[in-house]
Nucleic acid binder design. Sequence first.
DNA 1: TCACTATATAACCACATGGTTATTCTTGCA
DNA 2: TGCAAGAATAACCATGTGGTTATATAGTGA
Lengths: 105, 105
Amino acid sequence: MKLDATQLERVANQFRAFAEATRLAILQELKGGELSVSEIVDALPTSQANVSKQLKILHDAGIVTRRKQGTQVIYQISDPMVFELCGLVCGKLNRDAVKPVKIRF
Amino acid sequence: MKLDATQLERVANQFRAFAEATRLAILQELKGGELSVSEIVDALPTSQANVSKQLKILHDAGIVTRRKQGTQVIYQISDPMVFELCGLVCGKLNRDAVKPVKIRF
DNA sequence: TCACTATATAACCACATGGTTATTCTTGCA
DNA sequence: TGCAAGAATAACCATGTGGTTATATAGTGA
């Protein structure tokens, strides 16, 4: 059963959301539980504008959910598939590595 | 245990290899077993040059292996993780879809 | 050696995208 | 109402990249 061009494009779009270090860093922070935008900004070495931009991409892809609380917006990972995905990739990188450097998301 | 910037970059690079419809289409063809470049070209609506280019990206990412056989070069998926990855993403897309349209890589 | 096939590479272009700075919008509070 | 904080958006730039066309490279057989 082969996916047609449209379906492949949708799958590619999902992968694309994970294909940037900053977005992965955001997801890594959210792994510990929901966080407000400013908490994420404080945790990462990038600007508030960029965090908002990347969060929008993750949100559009359905990877995170948002919730307003006063003036804050709180984000949360929407599907634990995220961890499985990153786990698979880290596993492959660990297998491929010559030196055994354990990476785990 | 958090990944540092370099490790996140490597994870992102893996995801990036999957983040294009043409490369996913190639992997989908290779799902049935090893294929030569020209067989892949015949199966896809793109040029030989582009197939070679995308195969190089997949190969550099360690996702496919190559083998020369006469004048032909035969490619193969190197790690079954590929199918698990695509399966997870398809599963998420199926869950997210309002209309239940089963997608399966 | 000469053609022919199979594959890879180079040059190029149009377009997408990550990041920054500046600005706008929203909410809560004095 | 005015102000400050939190977050999103706009404009912009530099870079990366998918695809094409054209060319180069390697192997095969006559």
